[in-house]
Amino acid sequence: MAEVVLQLVGASCRHYISAPTLTKPWKKIRGPGIPKIDLALHRGTILGLVGPNGAGKTTLLRMLAGVLPLQKGTAVFTSLKGGQTIERELSTSVELRKIIGHMPEQVRWQGRKTVHDAMIEIAAMRGSSEHRILGLIKLVGLNSRIDSPLDELSQGMRQRLTLATALLGSPDILLLDEPFNGLDPVAAQAFTQLLQQLSEKGVSIVISSHQVSGLIGIIDRIALLHRGQLLIEGEIKSVEKELELSDRFDLTGTSQPPSSKLIEKLGMELLESETEQDSWQMQLKGNPDGVLKKLIGEGIEVESWQPHAPDLVEMLCSSTGLRVEDVGLEITSSAFLPLINREVEEE
């Protein structure tokens, strides 16, 4: 496993929310956020940070980016110098921001300022050179738009510009909040390749998303966040295994579907099945060795056989032990996940 580059230990950041009373109309209490989290980012890996709306993904990314302060806990940065690893506790948000590039969600660049001028403004805050600015504009594919006013950019182009600003300081860690929103499939593909190149160069990347399926094939590790808590984190395979979501396969076929007896005989478990007039599809779980060959041997007309990628709801259900039917579609319901004790609300 790649070495740890940044570690959050007991980190906490909770938002203050208004809770006015008759005698104290200005009263504020600590509301949602991240009550306490331990998270390690590994060098050269891509971590998918997934969770439903309101899980705390953006708050966690902002904590990592040094935009929100760590109210409790520490951030420890490990750097490589002359073959030696040096651990350093980052005591200020500015120190954290030096090593991190942050791409917030859906930045709407606007105004008569040009792409180049917007980059210069941000680069001045990092001390980046003109050469670096031009290189990044080219890298994100905005070279032909370098003198275009920001008002004339499409959302996808704005996303690229935000990415370019995030890469300005040659960061060790790159944080991307829902980066694929607004990108067309071609741009998304190019974007994915760029992320993989950066990862190969040793940059640690965190991508937040509420869709697991969009991240499969890109990420090396996954972290599941819900209501400010890190439910599970690790390599995809091990997380799937731990959540008992591994060894699942989607099958489709025509004419007669395999009987449940046959499936049982093959050592597989039937999870879901749906039959239409001339076609069927089902989801099986178990050891796949030789199963497909045997099914075909039994005269079953199989059209497709592919591993099943778990989705967010499945992962949440599995990690909390509850069923979707038990809680309905409201996955952010307070009854869905028993929370850890957040301590008494503080003023």
């Binding site: 980016a65 935009v67 942050h102 969600e105 930045v107 606007q110 941000i122 805050m125």
Partner: peptide, 14 residues
């Protein structure tokens, strides 16, 4: 409102 402030606040400048 546009999110540009977050980009600026993420830079290593106090």
């Amino acid at each position: 409102a546009s999110g540009v402030l977050e980009v600026k606040l993420a830079q290593p400048m106090s």
